[in-house]
Design a protein around this nucleic acid. Sequence first.
DNA 1: TAGATTGTTAATCGATTAACAATC
DNA 2: TAGATTGTTAATCGATTAACAATC
Lengths: 206, 206
Amino acid sequence: MDKHQRIPDVVIKRLPIYLRYLDQLSSMDIETVSSQQMGDDLHLNPAQIRKDLSIFGDFGVKGMGYRVSDLSEKLRSILGLDKEISIILVGVGNLGAALCQYNRYQSPTTKIVGLFDGHPSKVDKTIGNMKVKPMEDMQEFVKENGVKMGIITVPAQAAQKVADQMIAAGITVILNFAPALLNVPEEVKVQNSDVTTELQALSYYL
Amino acid sequence: MDKHQRIPDVVIKRLPIYLRYLDQLSSMDIETVSSQQMGDDLHLNPAQIRKDLSIFGDFGVKGMGYRVSDLSEKLRSILGLDKEISIILVGVGNLGAALCQYNRYQSPTTKIVGLFDGHPSKVDKTIGNMKVKPMEDMQEFVKENGVKMGIITVPAQAAQKVADQMIAAGITVILNFAPALLNVPEEVKVQNSDVTTELQALSYYL
DNA sequence: TAGATTGTTAATCGATTAACAATC
DNA sequence: TAGATTGTTAATCGATTAACAATC
C-alpha cells in the first residue's frame, strides 16, 4: 500500500461493484473468495482485482484468497460507507421524487435528508416522509447539517445555478441528473448521470 | 476515415455531449465553431475532439473550424438519431414511471413505446399516455414492433430474468438501472446506470 | 496573401494484463 | 509438504495529447 499515490476514478468505481458482489457471497454463507473466482463472476481480470485491492492494503491471504467479511468491511471503510452519509436533493419532479423513494429502500447508509425545489407549487409537498423545502432554506440547511453531497434533478437550464448554490453552501460532491455540463471549481467532484445522453450513446449500437 | 477500425466506447459516449453542445450553439445562432472553442467550453482537449470526429469523416474546414449545423447533422446520423428509436421499459415502479415521463419531454427521437411489469397490480395502470402491459405480452410486442432497445427498472433480483426475456425477444441493447450484473451474450450491449452504486462511489470523495 | 485551424502522426501517459517470486 | 493464490513487477495495450504539414 502506498498512501501517496493518486487513485484513479476507474478504480473507485469498481469498489462498490466488489462490495455488492461480496454481500451476495455473504448472503450465501460463502466465507472466502479468490480473485480468480471474483473475476469469473464479475467478468473482470483477476490481476486487475488484486491490483485494485492492493492499492488500499494487503487484504488477501496467500494460497487462500480473501475473507469475504473482512474484505467487505475494508471496502466499506475505504468508501466511507461505514457511517451514514447525508445528502440533499434539489428538484422534486418525477425523477427527483422517484430517486428519493428509490434510495430509501436501497441504501441505508447513503441517506437523502433534505428535499428542495425552486418552484412554489412543489414546496411543502411530502415525498416519502419528507417535506419539500424552498430553495431559500437550502444554504442554511446544508450548513447546519454538515451536508457535503447533493443530487441535482432540475431541468437543464436551472442546473448550473443550483450547482453554484450548492457549492456556495458547502457541498463538495454532486450527482447531476440534468443534461447539462456543470462548471465547478476543481475541488468539487461532479458525476453526471443523464438518461437522455445514455440513450443517445446506446443508439449507436443498434 | 477508416471504416475498418473498432471505435472505442469512450468515443461514442462523447458524441452525444458534442451534439448537445452544438444544439446550444445553434440556438444562439452561432454558425461555426473551432475544436479549440469546443474544448474550452466542454473542458476537453481540442486534439481529442478533432480525433474523435475524424474517425467518422472530414467534417471540418481547415482555417475555419466546423459548421455547427453540418456537424450536428453528421453526429445525429452516426448515432442513428436521425430516425425514431423504439424502446420498451420493464418495471413500472417509481423509477420506471419517472423515466418514462422524463423521456417524453426530453427526447423526441428515443421513444418509449411499451411499458411492461410482472406484477399484476401494475398492469393496466396508465403512465403518460401508455397502458402498462403484462410481461407475457412482451415478446410478441417486441417482435411485432421491431424493438431493439430495452430499459430495465425492476428490482435487482428480477433483473437477470427480465434481461433474458428481452434478449430472447430480440432486444440487443439494454439500459439497466437495477443494481445487478447482467450476464448477456457477447453481441448484446448493456449499459449499467445504477444510482446506488454511483452514490457509493461518490462517497469516497467526501 | 497571412492567419487560422484542420486532420494526422508521433510521443506520452495511464490502465490492463501476464508472469512469477513469496508465502499461506 | 505440495498446491493455491496473493501482491507486485514488467510487458502490453489503448487512449490522450502535442506537434505540425496541409490547406482553407
